[in-house]
Design a binder for these strands. Structure first.
Lengths: 234, 234
DNA sequence: ATAATAGTGTCTGTCAGACAATATCTA
DNA sequence: TAGATATTGTCTGACAGACACTATTAT
């Protein structure tokens, strides 16, 4: 029925929840907020909040991100992940949550928001275990991680996990962290440097490690990786 | 802010809208409903309606589908497409629409719903032209078509556009209709019959056309096509 | 020298696109 | 017979995984 009298439908709260992924210490990590109020008081949850009256969904996601992070929104990738609206997923009232996926390079320590007691990054593998996250956020996180894992197969998006200038090895370690696999450095190198437009050489090289210096690259203009990288082995 | 007093946030209507795609006369077609009331009265729009109090999002999509179609829900693929919530996308009130994508074999003629004056299938290429659809439904349709086009690359989903038993040529014509391209029948044949689990032979053959009879197949258990089919040429 | 990391070259198997050739029907 | 469609076979080029090998640094 497409009639718009408010009496026709119940009060529904619409929130925007965030799956914020980054790589720290070589491991894929997720931003979590410790809840300051009931239900699930003291438990960890995804960042999120209510959609505001005149706010687009995407804008709400960016706002939530900025609230939690004191954030340099430049090099962050944000995309809609999916919407979760099971009738009793929030015990207090009907809530439909639009989840967003955010991927970013090693972020500054999070700043706790208004009514969130605490914010931190936690290992994704840990938070994917049952009972670690409030509400249905474990499921949302699982969907977000799977989206990230498949998206870096056919887009150059893994570069957002790296600093502005990065080596091929940096990029490979980002893939390894997200996929949880090991890749052959030589085949990986050949593949990504051979993909026209994926990487742009800066002309500079590193000199810090105990090996041959590596060239530095920036993200190129390529948006779609054809053929895609394969998760099994690189 | 994650506090749940109703005064904190505005009234938001949540609807579920449907991009129902099928193939008729060799062309990809979309289910459209002629609107019976303002705004956009008399214009065509996607099927859809309000989420009910105790209803899951996916269940709402299936209900809308059944309402419009008098539907055999068996061989239909339904998945969430995305959520659209720009502040003034509906001129009357704030509406957040969760869009679903439904793919089905040649469907029975649609049955008009409660307050929809009329329902019909229309060519997708036609409805993608500006101004054909009400609200932001052109954008939602475009997203749905792109999702379908990419999804049949790496899943055996194109088979839902075919009858229960179908020939390799039937399947190829489904791909051609969705992608809007022509595929080499010989390479296509080799590819899909060679993909373990994509197709299961029924043992029967056709005899109706003016050529060599073709074997009949059913959908196999395969869920992910590796390597994927390529849109450019098959 | 040895360890460590960066990068190149090469081999082999698989699979894509192209298309010739064959099989089996209708008219 | 000609025409249409189904199916198989074959050729060639591109690219994957595997891995030997060279290059350049730190210790």
């Amino acid at each position: 029925m497409r009639s718009y009298r408010p009496s026709d439908y119940p009060t529904v709260g619409v929130t925007v929840d965030l799956v914020v992924l980054t790589i720290r210490s070589g491991r894929l990590q997720i931003l979590t907020i410790r809840r300051g109020e009931s239900p699930f008081r003291g438990r960890w949850a995804l960042a999120g909040g209510f959609l505001r009256p005149d706010e687009d969904l995407h804008a709400a996601a960016l706002r939530e991100l900025a609230e939690e992070m004191a954030f340099p929104v430049g090099s962050v990738h944000v995309e809609q992940l999916g919407t979760y609206g099971a009738p009793r997923r929030d015990p207090r009232m009907r809530v439909v949550s639009v989840a967003y996926l955010a991927l970013a390079a090693d972020l500054p320590e999070p700043a706790a928001g208004t009514d969130a007691a605490e914010a931190r990054f936690a290992d994704v593998t840990d938070m994917l275990r049952p009972g670690r996250l409030a509400f249905d956020h474990q499921r949302i996180l699982a969907d977000g991680v799977e989206r990230a894992r498949s998206k870096i197969e056919y887009t150059p998006l893994a570069a957002v996990f790296c600093p502005e200038e990065f080596t091929v090895a940096d990029l490979r370690r980002a893939y390894e962290a997200v996929w949880g696999t090991e890749l052959d450095p030589r085949n990986f190198h050949r593949k990504v440097t051979g993909a026209e437009g994926f990487l742009v050489e800066t002309g500079e090289i590193t000199g810090r490690d105990g090996g041959r210096p590596a060239r530095l690259y920036r993200r190129g203009p390529l948006e779609l990786l054809m053929p895609p990288l394969l998760r099994a082995a690189g």
